[in-house]
Amino acid sequence: MWMWLALAIGAEVTGTVALRASQGFSRPLPSLVTLVGYGLAFWSLSQALTRGMALGVAYGTWAAAGVALVALIGVFFLGESLTWVQAGGIVLLIAGVLALELGGATARA
């Protein structure tokens, strides 16, 4: 399950970075990478769900990891800035996903 979710996160992040590079879908290669990335992301996410991952955990992890990774890629590779408030938001996203996962583990026990 987790391998499929990791693939979904990687594909979504790749698609999102390519979306910026596509310049409004005016550049063919980044546009194609965007479409393939998002298609692969949703397919991989569906595979994680099919194999038994809880929807809240899967979607929460996928979304939070995607947001955090795209923000960090923006800072380290695309010259974007990150304020302390934004960094705190990323920490809160990660804490929320951990709460979902730990809460699910408690409910299963």
Rank of each mutant, 00 (worst) to 15 (best):
V36M: 06
L29F: 10
G24W: 01
S46I: 03
S31H: 12
T34G: 05
P28Y: 01
F42A: 03
S26M: 00
L29Y: 11
T50H: 13
V33A: 10
R20K: 15
P30H: 02
S22Q: 10
A41R: 08
A48L: 15
V33Q: 11
L49K: 07
L29P: 10
L29C: 06
S46Q: 07
R20N: 06
L32V: 15
L35H: 08
Q23R: 14
W43E: 12
F42I: 07
Q23E: 15
S44F: 06
P30V: 00
Q23S: 11
F42Q: 04
S46A: 10
L29A: 14
T50W: 05
L45H: 09
A48G: 12
T50C: 04
L29V: 15
R51Q: 15
S26I: 01
L32E: 06
S44I: 10
L35V: 07
L29K: 02
Y38W: 11
G39C: 03
S26P: 02
S44R: 01
V33H: 02
A21K: 04
V33G: 05
G39P: 06
L35C: 07
L49S: 14
Q47C: 08
R27Q: 12
G24A: 01
S26R: 03
S22F: 04
V33W: 08
R51W: 12
L40A: 10
G39V: 00
A21G: 09
G24K: 00
T50N: 15
S26K: 03
G37E: 14
L29I: 15
P28I: 03
S26D: 01
Q47N: 04
L45F: 06
S26N: 02
S44Q: 08
W43A: 14
R27E: 14
R27S: 08
L49N: 13
A48M: 14
R51K: 15
T34A: 03
T34V: 05
R27L: 05
R51P: 03
V36E: 10
P30C: 02
P30W: 01
S31G: 07
L49I: 12
Y38H: 04
S44G: 14
A21N: 12
Q47D: 05
P28W: 02
S22W: 09
A41Y: 02
L45W: 09
S44K: 00
F25E: 05
Y38D: 11
F25S: 08
R27P: 04
S46D: 05
L40W: 03
S22L: 05
L40H: 00
R20W: 10
L32Q: 11
V36P: 01
S31A: 09
S22T: 10
R51L: 15
F42T: 04
S31R: 08
Q47W: 03
L29W: 09
S46Y: 03
Q47E: 15
F42D: 09
G37L: 04
R27W: 08
Q47Y: 07
G24H: 00
V33D: 15
Q47T: 11
G39T: 03
S22H: 03
L32W: 10
S22N: 09
A48W: 11
P28T: 06
G39N: 01
